[in-house]
Design a protein around this nucleic acid. Structure first.
Lengths: 268, 268
DNA sequence: GCTTAGACCG
DNA sequence: CGGTCTAAGC
């Protein structure tokens, strides 16, 4: 089973890229971030015509996530509120950054768009850290339901270690690589999740995002900020995890490349 | 010799359309309107590489005209001021709507983008009528220099008679066809100029502009507002005048089609 | 750089 | 409807 995560930076602008890639790669579950569209304007029909189910949680202009699956999805929900209640979460759920559902072999997929954080110590940076703290509570609850069948993927806007950024010397000066961001994410992962990309590839300079500016892609000045995290049983059954840079070479690309994980579901 | 007029609605957006059409039609002189670009950002090199001279008079975002010629251009100038002096014209020359030059067989080309007028009796409608009054003085001066070798072309934003609009019953209710606009243009033409399109074609519904909205082009709900006006000697030597609707069918077209006049220059 | 939105123009 | 611009977000 192939599960992909892709920050598309507007699904309406990138629709043809996404449809073409989805079919040629025969993806089973596609997790999109930064769809940048309200739910009623999401181009659902284009996916449904090809046999996919589509669940969206979007807003105007910013953020927005979608879960697109060839297999039936159940228990789909979006935002922190369904699990954590409205008291803590109402404010954070105004931004549409989280959607989840269970796919047919009983695996829960959690698709995230972690806040960018803008600049270190800015209000948005604080919001990012608070959001990751909420995520910790949320994942804890999910794991209490089933500690072995959770896959979390998305745009984390965090480079987990120094191999995941092109200039690690600037680590503490740059958003996405500060200790506080890394630790906030590590606290979530400590609940029992592992970065499956590193099961297959320990090299540095394996990036999933390149700034549009200054020929960053051509010079491979990027960041690996799009991840798949798996609980131990799923991690064991993973057979591959790859970043596909091909769509990033197309005209008018998203700034992110899709990341695909393959899982052998026979023994689940 | 083939002389074309085309309102391109942004030369930067339409550059490929214009270059392709220019070469395939082997146009000698191309008069552009609504280039929508400041002079330093006009893509001159694209035309110069193919052996054309380029003269521009543009501004940011609005208006803008260009004269692009395979034969040498002389006495090029833009705006009313060079002929009429600054007193009356300074205000009107802030909008870049007029460029002129003499092409090699001694024919003066005057390329115009007449104001649209917005709504009847609006400030912009008054401006349009005043601009046409200034044009009358300007053309009078040009003809005093040479009454026989003047070609005026461009987007006139006026349907000269009822054949030139799809719904003549709305004539007085619609900008571009009110009596005051027609009379202001007729006053210029009375100096000794004739609409050369009507030398070859007296049919109605021969349009050069179709609104982008409501499928106007598909239903041929258009207007003939792009014209070539010739002094008698040139008029006699004209061998064809055609509107080429083909570029209007392309993806992301200009709302105007180019209009081409062919003149036999042997006897000039 | 490339996306969005809203405003203005035609 | 489609071009421009500005201002914001990443």
């Amino acid at each position: 089973m192939k599960i992909a995560s892709w920050n598309v930076n507007s699904i309406r602008t990138r629709l043809e890229h996404v449809l073409d890639w989805l079919y040629t790669q025969s993806i089973d579950v596609l997790c999109l971030q930064e769809t940048k569209v309200i739910d009623e304007d999401f181009p659902k029909a284009s996916f449904e015509e090809e046999g996919y189910q589509v669940y969206v949680s979007g807003q105007k202009a910013y953020n927005g996530v979608a879960l697109i699956s060839r297999t039936t999805l159940s228990e789909v929900s979006s935002g922190f509120t369904p699990l954590l209640g409205p008291d803590l979460t109402q404010h954070y759920d105004q931004q549409k950054r989280l959607i989840t559902g269970i796919i047919s072999p009983g695996v829960r997929i959690l698709n995230l768009y972690v806040p960018n954080g803008s600049e270190i110590d800015s209000d948005k940076y604080v919001y990012k850290l608070e959001w990751l703290e909420l995520l910790h509570h949320y994942v804890e609850k999910l794991l209490s339901q089933d500690p072995q069948h959770l896959l979390i993927c998305g745009d984390f806007n965090i480079a987990l270690d120094d191999r995941d950024m092109h200039d690690p010397s600037k680590r503490e000066a740059h958003i996405m690589s500060t200790d506080r961001e890394r630790q906030a994410l590590q606290k979530v992962l400590a609940l029992g999740l592992e970065d499956v990309f590193r099961k297959f590839n320990s090299k540095s300079e394996q990036f999933s995002w390149w700034n549009y500016r200054a020929g960053s892609f051509q010079r491979n000045k990027g960041w690996r900020i799009d991840h798949h995290y798996l609980t131990p049983t799923l991690y064991e059954q993973a057979t591959a995890c790859t970043i596909d840079a091909a769509p990033r070479r197309l005209p008018k690309p998203s700034d992110h490349a899709p990341v695909v994980v393959e899982i052998d579901t026979q023994n689940l």
